[in-house]
Amino acid sequence: MSISLEEVLQISYLARLHVDEEQAVQYAADLSKILAWVQQMNQVDTRDIVPMAHPLDVIQPLREDKVTETDQREKFQAIAPRTDRGLYLVPKVIE
């Protein structure tokens, strides 16, 4: 299992992480090693085994459809890096 530098850059793009060239080499080595090791799983035949997504086979509980949350916009925005008049600020997205 070998991960190329191009693959590292593609994964970092998907993960929204910045990876420079030097780091990419390190990631390629680390990820290749981890993924090769993970492939031990192929030792075991899992045909017809139902995937287990969760430890509990329980029914999703439903609650009554009523408003329980109060408006706390000011409190929540107080911890935001940049806001203006109740809005979260981001760099310009539309030219």
Binding site: V38, M41, V50
Partner: peptide
Amino acid sequence: AYYLKAQQVRRLIS
């Protein structure tokens, strides 16, 4: 190959 396989192995462990 990875996520689904791991979930199947998880079933075996359980």
